[in-house]
Each structure stands twice: as structure tokens, then as C-alpha cells.
Design a protein around this nucleic acid. Sequence first.
RNA 1: GCCGGGGUGGCGGAACUGGUAGACGCGCCGGAUUCAAAAUCCGGUGGUGGCAACACCGUGUCGGUUCGACUCCGACCCUCGGUACCA
Length: 821
Amino acid sequence: MEEQATDVDLLASESEVQEYWQKNRTFEVTENSTRPKFYCLAMFPYPSGQLHMGHVRNFTLGDVIARFQRLQGKNVLHPIGWDAFGLPAENAAIKRNIAPATWTRQNIDYMRGQMKRLGFSFDWSRELATCDPEYYRWEQWFFTRMFKKGLVYKKSAWVNWDPVDQTVLANEQVIDGRGWRSNALVERRQLEQWFVKITAYAEELLAGLDTLSGWPEKIKLMQRNWIGRSEGVEMTFPGIDGEGVTVYTTRPDTLMGATYVAVAPQHPIALDAARNDASLAQFIEECSHVKVAEADMAKLEKRGMPTGRMVRHPLSGESVPVWVANFVLMEYGSGAVMSVPGHDQRDWEFAKKYDLPIVQVVAPKAGSDERCDIAQEAYVSKEGVLVNSGEFDGLDFGAAFDAIATALSGKGLGERQVNYRLRDWGVSRQRYWGCPIPIIHCEKCGDVAVPDKDLPVVLPTDVEFEGVGSPLRNMPEWRNTTCPECGAPALRETDTFDTFMESSWYYARFESSHAESGMLDERSRYWGAVDHYVGGEEHAILHLLYARFFHKMMRDEGLVESDEPFVNLLSLGMVLKDGVKMSKSAGDAGDPQFLLDTHGADAVRMAMMFSAPPEQSFEWSEHGVESAARWLRRLWSTVEQHLEGPDPVGLDRSVLTDELRELRRLTHETLSKAEDDYGRRLTFNTVVSAVMSLMNQVHKTDASAPQARAVVREALEVVVLVLSPITPHVSHQLWQRLTGDALENAAWPPVDDSALARTSVEIVIQVNGKVRGRLEASPGASQEELEAQALALENVARFVDGKTVRKRIHVPDKLLNIVVS
RNA sequence: GCCGGGGUGGCGGAACUGGUAGACGCGCCGGAUUCAAAAUCCGGUGGUGGCAACACCGUGUCGGUUCGACUCCGACCCUCGGUACCA
């Protein structure tokens, strides 16, 4: 039936549809709808210059969900904005001598154009950029609330310091221990910085995960592990000739096997000991030339040195040496650990290396088949019982934990304690391109919050930025101010916020778009939590945890009502290019512009959706785009040819041929599958393939008879509608032609269950689990019936004859397995 | 190092609850159309053996559970993401 495809100009057609959307403000939403609300949000992008295929995937997936929910009759909020502060703008400023603000605004303009070209159904009236004073003003306002509440404090923390550029470096700017521009050996330095007490919410952040049934288990598991709640004992090893050392352990049962104590290189006891020990001082100095990152610390060769100090074992009273170890983190716990080389592999290796004693205090229970040879490796199991532990011998893990904790408590040297791996959130950045921290330092009054009436503290944008030193520190006219409390001359804080601050609440601001009366307004009550949040799996921990934390702080401030910001989460795999993730640091690899210009937005969107299911990472290849465009042109010409025929007659189900019944069954199966894939499974690749299969069937159908035309018409309408979330431009045009109505008025049609009924099913016949034949049977055929027919099949008989049938497994309407011996 | 994923034809992937492995598409091969080509349409396509019917092998590796394993369990290899200052 195929004629040659008419040459449809997909590109011209797309700009026509986009003009229509713009003119009709099709996707702008208000809060007074009677339809149920649905808030769909894809993680907003950093304006790095141009979109890459990772963005295309992210926003297409969000758009598909938004458009599907509209077809389901929801009032859909689908906003977009820009995570506009950040490091790359400063890098660009240095490299190209362009102000960060100018560079950022230019990038936003270009990327907005690309997004419009991709046909995303955003409500553009709600667009925001986090570098707008109108936006960050409320972040500053909120920070001062938290400051007054005591959720914000200052403490000293480590940074990577570039001694040549006189600047703090991000971890990614430190390459092999050297500054990326200066190539200077980076040092660790301590600076006074602002922290927000996320640990105060650790328990709630952990418990809240159990309520998030719409989140992938793997994300919740990662967050649980990140928070890292543990139950243990904090105890002190009293000093002999100086200070004692406090340690935290989750294995107090092994305490009698502690043969030394290891402290971080920056631990006070280490620094003190180094004063009279040049080689120790040298060792500590060497340890300071490691990047602040945990991964780098952990990959270090484990090294240590004795401090010469001794402490007393809290129970045995024996002298225990204190060592400095480069793998002990000052910022975790008390910066010291008790070392039990018999029952901790890392301690075991350290003890072997430095010839420290290894004592076994736990042994496998009698009759256990656990391996235990302290000479070869540490025995780390919690299944054993205590030995060599005096009065505690014979106790298992639980009993020993209790007994030793009680003994320590009795001596006043230790207490049970719940500990978290989670650390407080350091929000200070020694950067220019960020939101100014709204604090004023007064010599008399200390750190004072900027009063509401003086907000926002606007970041000056007319700066010379060279990447050396801090521009804000060098701007006395900005920095010098007066104390809001006493009126004396005072200085502004020159640090800016971590950009995770801005991305922790933007979802809420979209709801109360452009509110001038406050951070959020009553519109946030209508929209509530984000119903579906879409974004890359690389944000599984930091961004999503900070946003959950921020939401709870906003709730406790009376700004939002829900406990969690994101009801459902779709965590996307990476789009890889040559095996690595696409990101701003990967340059402009994967700019979709050329593909948009040659094949159009629908083809790019369809190819992207068809490539892989959302959670999966995959290597991007352009090959699918051309074939998607070809497929869409063919769909178009098929619809056109259909419309050239006579007007359709009404569908009469009672007179359909088997072939037409089959096509109708496939049509309604596709409809049913697509609804499930869009709404529940979120696998849009399988929607595309189901629709392709249906079209293959349409092409095989002889559509000359009136009833055939009616069945084909139904199939074409289903194809156009079902595909419309993915290919909105083509669907818009074809729906108009098929139905005479606008696509945005369309509703998802009901599945006709009667069309789904089958007249016969294929049964697979197995012998001993191997497929030996198939047969057609009526649905519901009995096992006896099927077995008789099966044994009549030559190939089945061949494997059964001369053997004894031992068992039959029957899966109704699917399979019969005959087990013989 | 630690935490969390992933590994299926030449390629992207499908198989949803333990029940036909490879749907759908790309690529490739053959055919139609064409003076010829492009475009388009039709057909074939996991490997090995066989004229064929069909058989054997096959979902990273090794082992286990089961009538039956891509799917469940154990060990390992490779790979990707995160690792608190990239966002």
C-alpha cells in the first residue's frame, strides 16, 4: 500500500508549532484550576555555554512526564531556571577576560534558545536565575533566620591553598597535588568558615527515607550509608605524661585488643609532640600536601609515626603508644581511633608494617566454620566470642559490647554514643561568583546578620577578575560598612555561599514565582511538594540530601507544609561520550545544535528516548536521529495518504475480519502498555518500540474496505497521541489533521478491554526444560488436552519416547514442560 | 580505599512476577524501483553444523539452587557514578 513518502518539511513544521505555543501561552499555568495539580521538575542546569546531550535527555524526560500528565488531565507546573552561580564562570573570566555575570547571561540566552528549539513545555513566565538579586535575596533572608536560630555557626576547616595564586582551590582544580593554573604544590590551610547544622537533622533525614516510596531504593541506600548512623562507645585513653586521647569505636567488644592509638596529623597531641621532634614535624608537613578530598586520602599509602607519647588503656591500665597516621581524618569523630590490629584489617596492615603488637581477643564460636588466623589477616567477624579479655571472656558481640560499655561508664572513662558519618555542611566559599553571605563583622558586636531592610546584599558585577586573590576583599567601597547594631565601622563577610545553597530551594521558589512579599507565598500551598523530580544520578547524595535538609528547615520556619520536597524521583544514568560523563568540564562535546538544524527536535527527542531506559547510562550515538526523522516522515505520509481517502465510517466491532481484529488488539495493547510505561515503569524506550510495532502492523494491513479504514484510523490516532509526549510537534500537526481539534485539548483514551481478547494462544512445549515445539490452543486449554497434542508433535515425541514421564509443569496459556528420565 | 550501579548479537537495547533469550531500531546482506545513483519500498540477519527438518552452543567469569536462571544465591573480573570546594 506504500507510496513514496511525501517530502515533509519537519523543520518548518516545528517552528510553526512553537510559534503557536508561544502565542497561545499553552504551558503557562495558574493555581485556580479545578484539575488535580502535578508538579514536574527536571533539575535545572548550570549555564555552561550550550546544551549537551545529557541536558537533552534530562529535559526531554521531564517534558515527556509533564506532557503525559497533561493528557491524564492534570494541571501541570513545569518550570525552568538556571543554576547560575559557580566556578566555571570564574574560569571563563580568567581565560577570556569577560565578566562572570556577562558570560553567564550570554550563556543563558543561548541555552534558552536551544531549549525553545527543542520544544520543551516549560512555563517560561516563571524562569529564574539564581544570580538574580531577586532570587538570592531570599536565600540571604533565610540564612539570617537560621543564624538567629543557632543552626549556623563558624568553625575552622581545611581548604586547598594555592600559594602562588594566593587563592583557595576546588578539589577538581587540584591535579596530582598541584594547582591547575600555577602548577604550585598545594597546601592544606585552615580557615574560619560558616557551617549549617545538618547533623541536627541527621536522624530525621535518615528516618524520612523510609517514607519516600517513590524514590529508587539505590538512592535511599546511598543516602543511608552517607548519613552513616552507628552505635558505639566514646571513650578516653587517659594521658600518662600529658593529654589523654578521646576515641569513638563501634567495636568496644575488641577493646582489650587495642594495642595503640592513632591520631590525625593535625590532632593537638600530634602537633604538640612535633614541637620537639623534627622528623615528626616533617612527617606532619608531608601529610599536609594532600588534597582535601576523601578519595585521595583513602588511596594514600598508609603511613605513620610514633609521637613518643603514651596513654593508659582505659580498662587494663597498660601503657599504649600514640601514633600519628595519615589515614585518620581530623574532621571525623574526634580525629583519633583506637587500633585493634587483630580485628580490623587496616589496623592489622599498619601494625605489620610498623611491627606493633597484634593481640587476638575474639575467636570463632565452637563449631563455627569461620576462618580465623591472626597471623595471616585480621578476624573482623562479629560472630565470635571474646578471648584474652579477662572477665569478658566467653561473651558474644552483643554481651561484650554491653559489658565493656558499662565497665567504661563505671570508671567515668566512656559512654555509649550514637554517631553519624554525616558532617555539618560547610557553606563558605572563598569565591567571587556566588551569593554574598549576609554577615557583618563588627569588632565590638562580633558577627552580626544583615537586617532584613538591607537585603539583598548585592554582589557587585563590575569587577576585574583575574583569579588571584579575592575580588571582594579588594573592594573597600563594598566591603566597608557599619555595624547594624552599634553603628561602628565594620566589614562585610567576603565569602560567598556554596552553590548547593541556591539549588536547595529553587523548586519551592518556582511555585511562588516572582513573589515580592516573601521567600514563598500562598501559591506554594497549592502546589505542595514536587510530584516528579528528574535528574542525574550524580546528584544522588549531595544535592538531594541538602535539598531535603533545606526543605525541613523551611518547614520548621513555617514556609512549607510537607516533610519532604520530592515525592517521586527519577534518577537518570549518564550520557557518556567516549566513556566519560558529559558535563561542562568535558567541553562542548555533544552539542545538539547540528542535529536540531538537520533533523529537527522531534527526531532528536525520539532518538534520545529510544536509546535506553532513563536509569541506564549509555554512550551517545547520533545514528538514531536520522532514522527517527525517517520514521516520522513516513508516519506523516501514512497519515496524509489515509486522509486522502473517503471520510471514515463508524467502527462496527461485530463485522471485523480476523486481520482487523488483530490490528485492533494490537492498537489497544499498545495503548495499555504505553500508559503503564509512561505512568508506572517510566521506560519511554519501550513506548517507542511498541508504537513502531503497531505501525509495522498498520503498513501490512489492507485498508481499502470502509471498516478497515475505520480500524486503521483508530490505530493512527493512537500512534499520534501516544507518541505526542515524545514528538509533540509532529503529533500536534497530525492530531489537528486527524481530529480537527488541538492536541492540548486531547485526553488519554480508555482501553477497550473487549479488543484485547485473544482467540488462540501459542503454547511452548518443553521437554526437560528445553523448547521442543509449539502449538496453537484456545485460551484456557487444560493440561491434559495440551499434553495429548504435544505428544503428537513429532519433535516432542522424539525426546519423550522410551522414557518415563516424571512430572509435568503447566503455566496456563504459556507453557507445558514435560519432565522425563 | 569506601558507598551505590551496570555488563545480553557487529551496535543501542527488549525479555515487567523464575517460564519461548535477542522484541523494536541501527548496521550489514539480498531484492524491487532507476539509464545509473541517492531517496523509498520489500525480505533476510546470534554462533557452529546441516540441502532441510533440526541439533548443539550462547546473556562478563567460575560455582550453586531449580523441572526450568539474563532474572535468585556465593565468589571473582571489568566498567561507570559519588566520595562532602565540579554542578
